[in-house]
Design a protein around this nucleic acid. Structure first.
Length: 152
DNA sequence: GCCAACGTTGGC
DNA sequence: GCCAACGTTGGC
């Protein structure tokens, strides 16, 4: 089983939004970065756990936990001309972008903030904290996952 | 294949 | 709103 961190802008889609979806499940569309796509398409497995990270907001940080409930399949928003995520280079015959389904697992009582994360020696190696790291989907180790959950 | 120009991310 | 860092595009 693998562990991940997935970023979302809470003004657009927060952990509360995820919880409120039917079956507390939503497809993770709009990923348009090859590295993030490859993680999703090639390595994410059903049952993997996800740190749900709030980015580009007042208090960035890990807001809770979600779970992968469906493995990668073509991201249909890439086919939709009216979508912000439309990509003419992706077709149904040869899809370029993929998404997974993610289910709400739990919300932390308080957000484990980015500021806080930066203070721990144990998390020094985290991809999230590396300079210039901007990936919206990245792997975390079991140790990092457990440690962060322990902070909540 | 190089690289300049441009676009995006995301913390601050 | 600024800007550093990184990704993508496209001319050559």
């Amino acid at each position: 089983m693998n562990y991940w961190l997935m970023k979302s802008e809470p003004d657009t889609f927060s952990i509360d939004d995820l919880k409120q979806r039917p079956k507390s499940t939503e497809h993770w569309d709009g990923v348009r970065n090859y590295q993030a796509r490859n993680f999703m398409r090639d390595e994410m497995k059903k049952g993997d756990l996800v740190l749900f990270y709030h980015s580009s907001c007042k208090v960035p940080g890990v807001a809770g936990i979600a779970k992968i409930v469906k493995e990668a399949y073509p991201d249909h928003t890439a086919f939709d001309k009216n979508s912000n995520y439309y990509d003419p280079k992706s077709s149904e015959e040869n899809p370029r972008w993929f998404m997974v389904d993610v289910k709400f697992e739990k919300k932390f009582k308080k957000v484990v903030t980015l500021k806080e994360l930066k203070t721990f020696e144990e998390l020094k190696e985290m991809k999230l904290l590396q300079k210039g790291s901007r990936l919206s989907i990245m792997p975390v180790t079991k140790e990092e996952f457990d440690f962060i959950q322990g902070l909540s």
